[in-house]
Design a protein around this nucleic acid. Structure first.
Length: 103
DNA sequence: CTCTTGACCGACG
DNA sequence: CCGTCGGCCAAGA
């Protein structure tokens, strides 16, 4: 079962190009909302109905830290670095350069 | 329908 | 730098 809200989060996350990342807040903003909506976005990804199909590891917090992950956090790090995103000590390096904004 | 919890964000002191 | 507060969304019990 996938709710309309989760479908939107899925779509936006899927739009993030390889080697780039986005933030929970950016997704919430893309949905026309903000505030607690960011948390709802995280919840939608927590359920992660599409497992590896949706690049949930490309979604980080607005300050460049990884935030959370439904599993081992190092998995998220390794997966990001495998795509060219430098991560160090739980934070994205050159964050401003790898952040993706929605059109 | 009501209450709680959450992979968050930004402002303030 | 750190703790606190307001935000007013989504899903499960």
């Amino acid at each position: 079962m996938v709710t309309a809200f989760q479908d939107q989060v899925y779509s936006l996350t899927c739009q993030v190009p390889k080697g780039k990342v986005t933030t929970y807040g950016a997704i919430a903003k893309a949905l026309g909302k903000r505030g607690h909506t960011s948390r709802a976005v995280g919840q939608a990804l927590t359920r992660n109905p599409f497992q590896p199909d949706v690049p949930c590891h490309r979604v980080v917090k607005s300050d460049g830290t990884l935030g959370g992950f439904g599993g081992e956090i190092r998995t998220k790090v390794e997966r990001l670095e495998a795509e060219g995103v430098r991560v160090r000590d739980g934070k994205v390096l050159a964050f401003a350069s790898v952040v993706y904004g929605f059109s």
